[in-house]
Nucleic acid binder design. Structure first.
Lengths: 109, 109
DNA sequence: ATTTGTTATCGTAATATTGCAATAAAAAAA
DNA sequence: TTTTTTTATTGCAATATTACGATAACAAAT
């Protein structure tokens, strides 16, 4: 086993949990915060800033890029990464919908 | 390797990513949604509803309980689970702080 | 006291994730 | 062209997560 049974869940449940998974690692949170603070950054900045190997940072960037949370543009020999505002706000909305569900009036507890 | 280097990140980054991790599985999203819809539920309801083994459901419930997102009270031979409103709103606030960061004015892209 | 119904825990197998060294790729500089 | 700088990819090794059968634990009912 060890295989998540995605087929028994709704698309909404699968996609929402995938979004959460992208943010479920401190390095990716740190990368996002650094990009937000500096308004942009290149891979090597993060390697120095975070103290993880270049290959590791590159992998995390790839995941963040894959879900659309960041985007990169080639600038000479380096790649400038920044937040994709549109996707960011879209995700924010999805999380809000989830958290704004009415959780009051429990039958127990 | 395969060991996340939590020591190189801030407490805030580690705790935020842990929160996201709890929600990073479709079964746990489905469990929360069912509890919210029904205002409460017992483990066996979820076993039937979701089609996962009882041991699996019990494990997911344990994780949701460990982070404080749900709470359970013993009712006869079963346990009634419900949302912990206080923790729920606390988490909502943490996510909001994260997402409400100003992501505009990129230097590239 | 025994059975029944419900949940938790243990052990284990399978899959996923993380981290990094090595190396490839690609563009600017020399 | 060769070197330098920067990023991406590949190929492991280690750890974490997921799922579930078996079984324990516990309370209510018989």
């Amino acid at each position: 086993m060890g295989l998540t049974k995605t087929e028994i869940f709704t698309d909404q449940q699968n996609s929402l949990s995938s979004l959460f998974k992208v943010l479920a690692h401190p390095a990716r949170i740190a990368i996002l915060q650094h990009i937000i603070d500096q308004k942009a950054c290149i891979c090597n900045d993060l390697v120095e800033e975070l103290g993880l190997a270049q290959a590791t940072i590159s992998q995390h960037l790839k995941e963040l890029k894959a879900c659309g949370m960041i985007q990169g543009t080639i600038e000479g020999k380096s790649v400038c990464y920044c937040i994709n505002e549109k996707t960011w706000k879209q995700f924010q909305e999805e999380f809000n919908v989830f958290f704004n569900q009415d959780v009051g009036m429990n039958k127990c507890c």
